[in-house]
């Protein structure tokens, strides 16, 4: 079966090339119970290059257009205009070729819910063109690799959210593909399952040169696993670089989180002065400050009467979330766990 697997792209070559991609959802008229929705440009002239062997991320809050973009790359949705080339194939003209080049893990598991973990993996392998012995061998290998052996005979529906997600991830790994497109693969997973996912991805990258396109709204995950990340906001790529390259743009800032016990002690002049630059949500203030300003602010809130009103504080170097906000992102909907 190795003979028939598509060859991985040589290191550094473009695996996925997107040019000027546009997808607009038409406006809908309001109905009973459903308000009218204006026209939405979900993919707004996007250019992207994903290179062979890299883990490339699409980061953005819910509704930024990540999934819409990915559906166009996987042949599930036709763009209004623009081009998508996967490993040299025009996927806009030949959407059916995408299934022979990539494995896709979507957000839904409806098609697999009532199957056992084992049968879900085996059936998917068969439908990826493997013969029965090869499908069974890959099923066993992948379930073993992900630690799903003990759950193999349980229906997906009976599993916890994270376990179900891991079982779906297993179906994306059977029947090797040079490109994995994973839409929020680790949603709901515990740390053990997450480690299993990233270990499996790394192994394929090292051994087969597999390229991974990852959709995420989790900034911590983005920082730790991605080689490069495109930040999406309202259908546009507002930045694209390595996580550290992006963070360098806000390296002159640090983030100070303050959590007040009841209410901020605004009678302390230093605290009152900080309020202007703080993003408030309930008892929490988030401040982005230059390092010397942050030091002064910490000194102010940890001394005297302000400290009595303080429940907790953290001082941190910038994360991708700070980058996202600095780039003009709306700042809601990113996850930090």
């Amino acid at each position: 079966m190795d003979r028939t697997d598509p060859a991985p792209a040589p290191e550094g070559e473009a695996v996925c090339v997107v040019r000027d991609l546009v997808k607009t959802y038409p406006a809908t008229r309001g109905r009973r119970g459903a308000p009218a929705v204006p026209e939405v440009c979900a993919t707004d002239h996007i250019d992207l290059d994903v290179r062979g062997g890299e883990i490339f991320g699409l980061l953005g809050p819910n509704g930024a257009g990540k999934s819409t973009l990915v559906r166009q790359l996987t042949g599930l949705m036709r763009p209004d205009s623009g081009s998508v080339r996967l490993l040299g194939h025009d996927v806009v003209r030949h959407p059916e070729r995408a299934a022979r080049l990539l494995a896709y893990l979507g957000q839904e598991s409806t098609a697999l819910d009532e199957l056992t973990v084992s049968l879900a993996a085996e059936t998917t392998a068969r439908l990826r063109g493997l013969d029965a012995p090869a499908a069974r061998a890959q099923r066993d290998a992948v379930l073993d690799e992900l630690g799903l052996g003990p759950l193999a005979s349980r229906p997906l529906k009976k599993l916890s959210g994270g376990q179900r997600r891991l079982a779906c991830f297993a179906t994306a790994l059977v029947g090797r593909r040079p490109l994995l497109v994973l839409d929020e693969p680790t949603t709901g997973m515990d740390p053990v399952a997450r480690r299993a996912v990233w270990a499996a991805v790394d192994r394929r990258r090292a051994e087969e040169g597999t390229t991974v396109l990852l959709v995420t709204h989790n900034v911590i995950e983005a920082e730790t696993v991605l080689d490069r990340v495109a930040v999406l906001e309202q259908g546009r790529v507002i930045a694209c670089d390595t996580p550290s390259g992006l963070k360098a743009h806000v390296a002159h800032e640090v983030r100070l989180d303050l959590l007040w016990r009841e209410r901020p002690p605004l009678d302390v002049p230093e605290v009152a002065a900080l309020r202007d630059s703080a993003a408030e949500s309930g008892r929490r203030w988030v401040l982005r400050l230059a390092p010397d300003e942050a030091r002064a602010a910490v000194a102010a809130v940890t001394g005297g009467s302000a400290f009595a009103a303080l429940d907790d504080f953290t001082l941190a170097t910038p994360s991708l979330e700070d980058v996202y906000l600095a780039l003009g992102g709306s700042g809601t909907g990113l996850v930090k766990t």
């Binding site: 090339v17 593909r177 490069r228 670089d241 390595t242």
Partner: peptide, 24 residues
């Protein structure tokens, strides 16, 4: 962000020939 050296120096080469497709 689009101007960063990382993104630019690592710009991909063009793909010579389309990759083989996995069997249906």
């Amino acid at each position: 962000p689009g101007m960063s050296t990382t993104a630019r120096t690592a710009a991909p080469r063009a793909v010579a020939a389309p990759a083989a497709l996995a069997p249906r």
